[in-house]
Deep mutational scan, measured.
Amino acid sequence: KTVHVDGVEYRFNNPEEADKFVKRLVKEKNGNVEVRGDTYHVE
Rank of each mutant, 00 (worst) to 15 (best):
R36I: 13
V3L: 04
T2I: 14
E9R: 08
V42R: 04
K29M: 14
K29Q: 10
D38V: 06
N30Y: 11
Y40C: 07
E16Q: 06
V26T: 07
K20A: 15
H41G: 06
N30G: 14
E28V: 06
Y10G: 00
R36C: 15
R24W: 14
D6K: 03
A18Q: 02
H41E: 10
E9Y: 12
V42H: 06
E16Y: 06
L25E: 03
Y40R: 03
N14E: 03
V3W: 04
R24Y: 12
K23N: 09
V8W: 04
G37W: 14
G37R: 06
N13A: 12
E17C: 14
E17L: 02
K1Q: 07
K29H: 15
H41S: 09
R36L: 10
K27S: 11
E17W: 02
V3C: 13
V26G: 03
V42G: 08
G7Y: 02
E28R: 06
K20P: 03
E9P: 04
F12I: 02
V5H: 06
T2A: 04
P15Y: 09
V42N: 10
V42P: 06
N30V: 06
G37H: 08
V33C: 15
E43W: 15
N14A: 02
V5W: 11
Y40E: 06
P15E: 13
D6L: 03
E34Q: 12
R36H: 09
G31S: 09
K29N: 12
Y10P: 00
R24F: 09
E16I: 05
V35F: 10
Y10N: 00
F12C: 09
R11S: 06
F21Y: 02
V42F: 12
K1Y: 15
D6E: 03
V26F: 12
E28S: 10
E34F: 14
V5S: 01
D38F: 06
N30Q: 09
A18N: 00
V35M: 09
V5L: 05
T2N: 04
P15C: 08
V42S: 06
V8N: 03
K27E: 11
V22L: 13
L25V: 05
R11G: 01
E43D: 10
F21K: 00
V22E: 03
A18M: 06
T39I: 10
K27L: 13
H41F: 15
F21V: 01
P15F: 09
K27C: 15
K20D: 14
P15H: 08
E9C: 15
K23R: 11
L25S: 03
Y10M: 02
H4F: 15
K27N: 08
H4T: 13
A18D: 02
V33Y: 11
G31H: 11
E9M: 11
V26M: 14
V5Y: 11
D38L: 06
K1V: 15
K29V: 11
E16D: 10
T2S: 08
N32E: 06
D19N: 05
K1N: 08
H41T: 09
E17V: 01
K1D: 02
D6Q: 03
D19A: 11
R36F: 10
D19T: 06
G7A: 02
T39G: 11
G31I: 13
V33R: 03
R11A: 04
V5G: 01
V26P: 02
N14R: 02
V42L: 07
N30F: 10
V35C: 14
V8Q: 04
N14C: 13
T39M: 08
V3S: 01
E9Q: 08
N32R: 14
E9K: 05
V3Q: 01
V5F: 11
H41P: 06
D19Q: 10
G7F: 01
P15T: 10
L25K: 04
Y10H: 01
K1A: 13
E34S: 12
E16F: 06
V42T: 08
D19S: 05
V8S: 03
N13M: 10
G31D: 06
N30T: 05
V26K: 07
K20F: 09
K20R: 13
V33W: 10
V8T: 05
G31C: 15
F12Y: 00
T2W: 08
L25A: 04
N14S: 14
D38R: 04
V8H: 05
V33F: 10
E9G: 01
V35I: 13
V26A: 10
Y10K: 00
Y10I: 03
T39L: 08
A18H: 02
V5M: 03
E43F: 15
E16H: 04
Y40K: 07
K23E: 12
V35Q: 06
N32S: 12
K23F: 03
V8F: 04
G7T: 01
H4N: 12
N32T: 13
L25M: 10
V33T: 04
L25Y: 08
G7I: 00
G37Q: 07
R11Y: 13
V33N: 05
T2K: 04
Y40P: 05
V35D: 03
N30S: 09
V26N: 07
G37P: 07
N30W: 11
G31E: 08
H4W: 15
L25G: 02
V8I: 09
D6H: 04
K1P: 10
V33H: 03
E43R: 12
V3R: 01
E9N: 03
E17A: 04
E16G: 04
V22S: 02
V42W: 09
T2E: 02
F21C: 05
K27D: 11
T39E: 11
H4K: 13
K20H: 10
L25H: 03
N13F: 06
F12D: 00
V35G: 04
G37A: 05
E16S: 04
D38G: 08
D19I: 14
H41I: 14
V3E: 00
E43M: 14
G7Q: 01
A18L: 08
Y10V: 02
K20L: 13
R36D: 10
V22K: 05
H4E: 08
R24A: 13
H41L: 13
E28Q: 09
K20N: 14
F21H: 01
E43I: 14
E16W: 07
D38W: 04
G37E: 08
R11C: 12
E17G: 00
N30M: 10
K23H: 06
D6C: 15
R36K: 10
D19M: 13
Y40I: 14
K29L: 15
A18R: 05
L25W: 07
G37K: 05
K20Y: 11
V26E: 08
E43G: 11
T39H: 12
N14V: 03
D38I: 05
Y10L: 02
V8G: 00
N32A: 09
T39D: 09
K23G: 06
G7L: 02
V33G: 04
D19V: 11
E17F: 00
V26Y: 12
L25P: 00
K20T: 11
V33I: 08
R24N: 09
E28W: 13
E17I: 01
D38P: 05
N14I: 03
H41Q: 10
E17H: 01
H4A: 05
G7V: 02
V33L: 10
V22D: 02
D6W: 05
N14D: 12
N32F: 13
Y10C: 04
N30E: 07
K29W: 15
V3N: 00
D6V: 01
T2D: 00
Y40H: 05
F21R: 00
E28K: 07
H4L: 14
H4I: 15
D38Y: 05
G31N: 08
F12H: 01
D38C: 13
E17R: 00
G7C: 10
P15W: 12
V35T: 06
N14F: 03
P15K: 12
T39P: 06
D38T: 05
N13Y: 03
N13S: 13
R24D: 12
V5Q: 00
N13I: 07
T2G: 01
P15D: 10
D38Q: 06
K27A: 14
K20Q: 13
E16V: 04
R24V: 04
V26D: 04
N13P: 09
D19W: 15
G37S: 06
T39N: 08
E9T: 11
A18T: 01
F12L: 00
V3Y: 05
D38A: 05
G7D: 02
V3F: 03
V35W: 11
Y10R: 00
D6Y: 06
F21P: 00
F21M: 01
E9W: 13
N13E: 13
H41W: 15
D19Y: 14
N14Y: 02
A18V: 03
K23W: 04
E28I: 09
Y40V: 12
E43K: 12
K29F: 15
K23A: 14
V35N: 05
N13D: 13
K27V: 06
E16R: 04
V8P: 00
D6T: 01
G31R: 07
E43H: 13
K29I: 11
K20V: 10
Y40F: 11
E17Q: 03
K27G: 09
R24G: 08
V22M: 12
A18E: 03
N30K: 08
R11V: 08
R11E: 02
P15G: 07
H4C: 15
G7M: 01
D6P: 01
Y40L: 10
E34W: 14
E28H: 08
N30I: 05
N30C: 15
V33M: 06
N14H: 03
K27P: 02
